[in-house]
Design a protein around this nucleic acid. Structure first.
Length: 425
RNA sequence: GCCGGGGUGGGGUAGGCGGUUAUCCUUCGGGACUGUGGAUCCCGCGACUCGGGUUCAAAUCUCGGCCCCGGCCCCA
């Protein structure tokens, strides 16, 4: 019988786990300095939580099942919807705005490819019930600062505003559904398909030309002047532009000045309502997008009261990829204790336990190998010290401590040993 | 789903135009260096995805299944 790891999943060994925990720790600390606190939702939810949000077609990409009580459940394919559900169930009546963050794994039944896994992790946050350019700027600042804290170079923040684009479509009286479709194509960046669709939908030449111009507009905040020129009499879009300007100004106060205005960012999701942003690491090619976010309204879709949220999520695995951390030989244990003779095993056990109680990670030679082999193993473990318990030393109330890095050795009084070692670890 | 590549000792690989003892590195176990290692040497454990076919003979050719990886479609 051959049992192996399911397709699209990964095993993480010691060194990689250590790296992931480290990144996780930096993100937690940074989010918490912005006043966010962690929430956790179940790994499986009701299936309809996801179909209501994204449509029936996603069922084919969801790991779903009927439980023993006949309920249709699903392994969560993303975390935005569970967070909205949690808010609606538990926090709807609480004072606003509410800041929360989350970290967890998601599951999708899709064809794996480079960087595309069936189990993947997201680290994200939501600021619920306080939409304003100031709030939005702070969310973007948090995303940017997190990456700076991690020491990531070469990332680009791209910011768009759906209100500008929807203001044009609204003036053409394009129905909601068609607008959503158009947004999807814009997000895809397929210019030809967009032209074809706008023609099919019979958007006026003026608006069509304007849309094409806008989605190709990219650059620093100064391009907003160009955008204003393009917009002319589209009053709804101008209002959104004003909002965008306010965001830009506020970002400056947060110290965020390195970003791209990019109206081609549409996110392709119908529940987004205003600011949208994505973060890229260009050198990663097809997997360059490590973060997506913006302002949206989802709770109403699930039957709650209308409330807008601004948030984002890092693709944790993409982020790890971008950081490219080395998996150096890691120290499995600080101290390796070796009984030189069988008679010294009890003492070796006592020493090991004392070290552990003092917060020093320690392991004991349990295989009965000779000293030579045991020392070799200590090296394999990357142990900083080896402690040798021999009959001679024990008789004298001492213990031999070998520094594995310096290849030096000393004999210490038994009762001073723990403190000495602890002080050097 | 379509296209392409692949599946060889615990890990990584060579072999692949058929030849009958399957290569190399590494991991692991034992031994030699006489209570002390990171080197070296010796011995050992351990393998050709499953099924069928062709053949005196198949890891090597062929048919089918299963599995994995990459590209496309899709990507909440």
């Amino acid at each position: 019988m051959d049992i192996s790891r399911p397709r699209g999943t990964r095993d993480f060994l010691f060194a990689e786990m250590r790296n992931r925990k480290e990144v996780e720790g930096v993100l937690r600390r940074t989010f918490e300095t912005y006043g966010y606190h962690e929430i956790k939702t179940p790994i499986f939810e009701e299936l309809k939580l996801f179909t209501v949000k994204s449509g029936e077609e996603v069922v084919n990409q969801i790991y779903h099942f009927t439980d023993k009580g006949g309920r249709e459940l699903a392994l969560r394919p993303e975390l935005t919807a569970p967070v909205a559900r949690l808010y609606m169930n538990e926090m709807q009546k609480k004072p606003k705005p509410i800041k929360m963050y989350y970290f967890g794994s998601c599951f999708r039944y899709e064809r794996p490819q480079a960087g595309r896994f069936r189990q993947f992790w997201q680290f994200g946050c939501e600021l619920i019930g306080g939409r304003s350019p100031l709030a939005e700027a702070e969310v973007i600042s948090l995303a940017s600062e997190s990456l700076h804290e991690l020491g990531l170079d070469g990332f680009e923040v791209h910011i768009g505003h759906l209100g500008i684009l929807r203001g044009i479509l609204g003036r053409e009286e394009i129905p909601s559904e068609l607008q959503d479709r158009i947004m999807g194509v814009i997000d895809k960046g397929d210019v030809e398909e967009l032209e074809a669709l706008l023609g099919e939908v019979e958007v006026s030449g003026e608006s069509r030309e304007l849309l094409m111009k806008l989605i190709g507009t990219q650059g620093g905040p100064e391009v907003l002047d160009d955008v204003e020129e393009y917009l002319g009499g589209y009053s709804e879009s101008l209002e959104a532009l004003e909002e965008f300007r306010e965001l830009v100004e506020t970002l400056h106060y947060f110290g965020v000045d390195d970003y791209h205005v990019n109206l081609g960012i549409a996110r392709g999701l119908d529940y987004y309502t205003g600011i949208v942003f994505e973060i890229y690491v260009p050198e990663l090619g097809a997997q360059k997008q490590i973060c997506g976010g913006g302002t949206y309204n989802l709770v109403e879709t699930f039957g709650g009261e209308r409330v807008e949220s601004t948030g984002f999520a890092f693709g944790f695995d993409r982020l790890m990829n971008a950081l490219g951390m080395d998996e150096e030989n890691m120290r499995m244990v600080d101290v390796f204790v070796i009984p030189i003779q069988d008679s010294t095993v009890p003492e070796a056990i006592r020493i090991t336990q004392e070290l552990r109680a003092a917060g020093v990670s320690a392991d004991l030679e349990v295989s009965g190998r000779k000293l030579r082999k045991a020392l070799s193993h200590a090296d394999n473990l990357g142990a900083r010290f080896a402690v040798l318990t021999g009959e001679r030393e024990i008789q004298d109330g001492k213990v031999t401590v070998k520094d594995m890095e310096r290849n030096s050795q000393e004999t210490l009084p038994r009762d001073e040993m723990v403190d000495k070692i602890k002080g050097r670890c």
